[in-house]
């Protein structure tokens, strides 16, 4: 146990009595929220059930047949969506994960139907677009960022950004996905300002664009390195503009990767340790300076 109760008591004034009192109650464990534990249990429960559903689809094809299996999954998914919808007024933290389970079942079911009935035939990838649109609609209907992230992943895969298939040919799909997400974010911000999706779009767009640029660095180091530095600089600038330090940090790390790749391409490989050492010292100093500037801008 660790308690700051004595220090907190010393800070009490008539103006902050209530706020400090709440903190003291938390330090004393008079009020102890198990919300994080419930979230983790709900998330693990939903994903474990979805994994079980995946195995059911895989292993029971001959026994039950594709139509029965697809219908079974659809009914289960509808039940999850309906449960969450009708409990909106008295929703608990766990309802979000029942919704997640429903979404995962839909994804699995759509892919299963396509694999069995070949509805799109050679254009089989279009089923990913259906999944993306369905989850996007669900995200807006339920105001769920988890469904939004599933939608973005499906959309990226439809466009062709799938890191699980290796780095080859990722750059163009990555930039296309990032551009689409930026447009989507802008439309979301203007049309539905009440949603809280902007930051999710921003993080996905930044990470996908950075991955896209880094994916070409082995093949075309100069171009990809320069592109990576430009994208990373844009991400850092976005971090400053939105006062969100994570963008600054991962933008900076990718910029260092791009810069090192360029330098290593242009100089003698026998000095690689010296280059890395100098670059890391410079990176640490640079990040310190950037952090100090970020803090001063936030304080302004």
């Amino acid at each position: 146990m660790h308690s700051l109760e004595p220090e907190l008591r010393a800070l009490i004034t008539p103006h902050n009595e209530r706020a400090i009192g709440a903190l003291i109650a938390r330090e004393r464990r008079d009020v102890f929220s198990v919300y994080p534990e419930l979230r983790l249990a709900g998330w693990l429960g939903a994903t474990t059930l979805a994994a079980a559903a995946g195995i059911v689809l895989k292993d029971n094809l001959e026994r039950l047949g594709p139509i029965a299996l697809a219908a079974l999954m659809a009914v289960a998914a509808v039940a999850c969506y309906a449960w969450t919808w009708f409990r909106r007024a008295k929703a608990s933290v766990v309802d979000d994960y029942v919704l997640l389970l429903g979404a995962l079942l839909v994804s699995a079911d759509v892919a299963f139907v396509e694999s069995q009935f070949h509805l799109f035939d050679a254009n089989w990838k279009h089923h990913l677009l259906i999944v993306a649109v369905f989850h996007a609609l669900g995200a807006y209907a339920y105001r769920s960022r988890m469904l939004l992230s599933l939608s973005i992943v499906a959309l990226a895969a439809w466009i062709g950004f799938e890191t699980s298939r290796g780095l080859e040919g990722l750059m163009i799909p990555a930039f296309a996905t990032a551009a689409f997400l930026i447009l989507w974010r802008e439309a979301d911000r203007r049309v539905l300002p009440a949603t809280t999706f902007s930051r999710t779009f921003e993080h996905f767009a930044a990470v996908i664009a950075l991955h896209g640029a880094v994916s070409r660095i082995d093949h075309d180091t100069i171009t990809a390195g320069l592109l990576l530095i430009v994208v990373a600089a844009a991400v850092v600038a976005w971090g400053f503009r939105t006062r969100s330090e994570p963008f600054v940090l991962y933008g900076f790390v990718f910029a260092v990767i791009g810069l090192d790749a360029l330098v290593l391409k242009l100089v003698d490989y026998s000095r690689v340790e010296l280059i890395i050492l100098v670059s890391m010292v410079a990176a640490v100093a640079g990040l310190h300076a950037l952090h100090a500037r970020f803090k001063s801008e936030v304080a302004r």
């Binding site: 979805a50 995946g54 689809l57 895989k58 094809l61 979404a103 995962l104 994804s107 699995a108 759509v110 892919a111 299963f112 396509e114 694999s115 069995q116 089989w124 990838k125 089923h127 990913l128 999944v131 599933l150 992943v153 499906a154 990226a156 895969a157 799938e162 699980s164």
Partner: peptide, 13 residues
Amino acid sequence: ESGGEFGGAGATG
């Protein structure tokens, strides 16, 4: 078993 992959949340297929 039919030789393909099917996706889940992101439905990579």
